[in-house]
Every structure is written in structure tokens, then in C-alpha cells.
Design a protein around this nucleic acid. Structure first.
Length: 356
DNA sequence: TAATCGTGGTC
DNA sequence: TGACCAAGATT
């Protein structure tokens, strides 16, 4: 206890707190128990920009269906995409499968245990590689996610607006990262950010780092991290065509593998643009049919734009062939398609309007 | 460096 | 009700 450098004191105060207040999470090993690298990896990918609440059911479903990395590697990528549907950021699912294949084929089914090798795998960036090295293998690593950024920015009262402050935040984070209990420390920082040092109203009164916190000393810790002024979110509009055959089959198509909703199933529609003309929507219908426009719009907000989608409902004869790029899917199999949430909204709107 | 890439919850 | 936010990666 004679080393009173900030390095050790921050970490030990945090670890004492963690031993008492750590969250119980499905992918987290019990104290003293070894963690399963597969579970750690799977959860870390799912948790990228995604809440714990949203991840839990997906994590359980994946683990039940594919209990280890070999099972996941052996699955068709389309099955993985379907299982991922609804969780968002679909390139994660494609990379997840690519990573499982790499582990199975290049590493004999065992995850590499150092940060650099992990970093080279698909879908593993600086954060995730460091997190897995620390949590699954006990390696010292500087783990910086959104929680750590917030905690560190407050602790050191960093005035530089993010994202310009990232290098400084990383430097400060490295300076307080201990050499021991790497996994516990990384998870402690994230638990602190998630439960105490929260974005809006940090609970400084019960924070183990409050004594050392520069942001608190200044009187307004919630001011950190300092953000750059926000940009406006543009709105785009378009139309979707929900076409059914007399036998109930629905016309769908698969989006290109890359880009927005890459590789996912969609209801055919027009491009989405800022200057969409409602009156010319029907000129872009994928197949000739009698269409009825539903009242209102399906609304959906993406990260960088908001979308308003008109929905047209049409019906064709059973003999009708699917147009180029489209396919018919039986009504009872539509829910099993890799439908992103936006498209589930479209389907729901169309069904609600047709079944009355 | 700056865009792009989902979704659901919160205030 | 709209803006912000969540265990970021990729290009």
C-alpha cells in the first residue's frame, strides 16, 4: 500500500467496488471461474453499439443453436443472417461467420490469445480485440469503449471535444490500466460507466472514483465528454410494394451483400431519396398489378437519415413469374426470412390493411 | 478523417 | 417528440 501513484489507486478502488457490485450477465464467468472465449467473443460482437437488454435474447438463441465456434463455422451464412435479423448492423453477422470460419480453419477451433492476432480477425477492431484479450485471456490491454471514454473524460476533465479527444483519452486510459486482473478491470470500467458514471445524471455520491474525479471537482461532471455540435438528420422517402399471389406467396428480394441492410430480405420498392415523387411511385413497381396505396407511412429512423415509406398493396395471379431479381416466398415462410425491423414494419402494415 | 451502418429505449 | 444514446468496425 505504499505505491500511491494514481495508476494503482484508481485501479484498486475500482476493483474493490467491482468485487461488490459487478453485474451478473449471461456471458460473464462467475468470480474465479475461467471464461469461455467463444461466449466472450459472441457477446462482444453483439454488444457493439447495442444495449445489454437487446443482446440477451440473441445471445441465448445463438449459444443454444451454435454452442461452440465450430458449430457456428459449419452453419450456412444465411442461417446466421436470419438468426441475427432485428439486431441491426448486419455486417456484424457476416463478419461473425467469417471470423468463426477463420478460427475453425486457421486456428484449429481455438481463439488466439493475444491482442494483435485477435485484431486481425474479421469484425474485431481495437476495442473488441482488447476486450477479448483482457476478459477471455487475462492479458493486459487498454480497453476503450464508450463507457471508458466517458469515465476517463470525466476523471481527467478533458475539455477537448470528441472525437478529437480520443488519442488523449486512450493515453489517460492506458496510464491507469493495471497489470493484473485485466479482465475484471476492463469489465469494472464498463460496469461503472453503465451503472454509476452514466451519460445524463452520474451518481457521484456512490462512485468509487469520485475522490479523484476532475469533472466532479469542477462541479459538472455530466458536461464531459465534450461533444461537437450535432448535425441534422436528413429525411428520405420512398415506396414499397407488398405484392401477394392468389396462393398467398409474397414477392421479396435479397439486398446486395454490402451497404445498408446488406444481404437482408426486403419488400421490393423504389430507391429512397430526398426528392421522392409520390405520383411517380407506381412507375417503379416491380410487377404489373392493381395497387392500392395504404394511408400513412411506415416510419423508420436509421443512424444517419430518417425514412418515410409509402406502402402499396397489390395482388397478382398464381401463375405470375417473379420479375428479375425478385422471388416468391410462401406466406408461412415470410416470418422466417432475414427481415430487418424496417421490413417487418412494412409487412405488418400491409397485413393489417389486407386482413380486415 | 469522415461517412456509413440498425434498432429500441429514454427523457 | 425528437434528440440522444448503447461493450464500434469498416472503408
Amino acid at each position: 500500500m505504499y505505491d500511491v501513484s494514481s495508476n494503482t489507486s484508481h485501479a484498486s478502488a475500482l476493483l474493490v467496488w467491482y468485487d461488490r457490485h459487478r453485474r451478473v450477465l449471461p456471458w460473464r464467468a462467475a468470480p474465479g471461474e475461467p471464461s469461455d472465449p467463444y461466449a466472450v467473443w459472441l457477446s462482444e460482437i453483439m454488444l457493439q453499439q447495442t444495449t445489454v437488454t437487446a443482446v440477451k435474447p440473441y445471445f441465448a438463441a445463438f449459444l443454444k443453436r451454435w454452442p461452440d465456434v465450430a458449430a457456428l463455422a459449419a452453419a450456412p451464412v444465411d442461417e446466421v443472417m436470419r438468426q441475427w435479423a432485428g439486431l441491426g448492423y448486419y455486417s456484424r453477422a457476416r463478419n461473425l461467420h467469417a471470423c468463426a470460419l477463420a478460427i475453425a480453419q486457421r486456428f484449429g477451433g481455438r481463439f488466439p490469445d493475444d491482442e494483435a492476432a485477435l485484431r486481425a480477425l474479421p469484425g474485431l477492431g481495437p476495442y473488441t480485440a482488447a476486450a477479448i484479450a483482457a476478459i477471455a485471456f487475462g492479458r493486459r490491454a487498454v480497453v476503450v469503449d464508450g463507457n471508458v471514454e466517458r469515465v476517463v473524460a470525466r476523471l481527467f476533465a478533458i475539455e477537448t471535444p470528441t472525437p478529437a479527444a480520443k488519442p488523449l483519452i486512450r493515453e489517460r486510459a492506458a496510464a491507469i490500466t493495471p497489470d493484473h486482473r485485466a479482465g475484471d478491470y476492463a469489465q469494472a470500467m464498463m460496469d461503472l460507466g453503465a451503472t454509476i458514471c452514466t451519460p445524463k445524471q452520474p451518481a457521484c455520491a456512490i462512485c468509487p472514483l469520485s475522490q479523484a474525479c476532475g469533472g466532479k471537482a469542477l462541479g459538472d461532471p455530466a458536461r464531459f465528454p465534450v461533444r461537437m455540435p450535432k448535425t441534422v438528420r436528413p429525411r428520405r422517402r420512398g415506396a414499397a410494394f407488398y405484392v401477394t399471389r392468389a396462393d398467398g406467396a409474397v414477392l421479396v428480394r435479397t439486398r446486395p451483400p454490402k451497404g445498408l441492410l446488406g444481404g437482408m430480405t426486403e419488400i421490393p420498392g423504389t430507391p429512397w431519396s430526398g426528392d421522392f415523387i409520390e405520383g411517380s411511385a407506381l412507375d417503379l413497381a416491380p410487377i404489373k398489378a392493381r395497387y392500392r396505396k395504404l394511408d400513412g407511412c411506415v416510419e423508420h429512423v436509421f443512424t444517419h437519415f430518417a425514412l418515410q415509406l409509402s406502402v402499396y398493396v397489390g395482388e397478382v395471379e398464381t401463375a405470375s413469374a417473379a420479375p428479375e431479381g425478385c422471388r416468391w416466398t410462401p406466406a408461412e415462410r415470410l416470418d422466417g426470412e432475414a427481415l430487418p425491423s424496417l421490413m417487418r414494419k412494412v409487412v405488418e402494415a400491409a397485413r393489417g390493411a389486407t386482413e380486415v
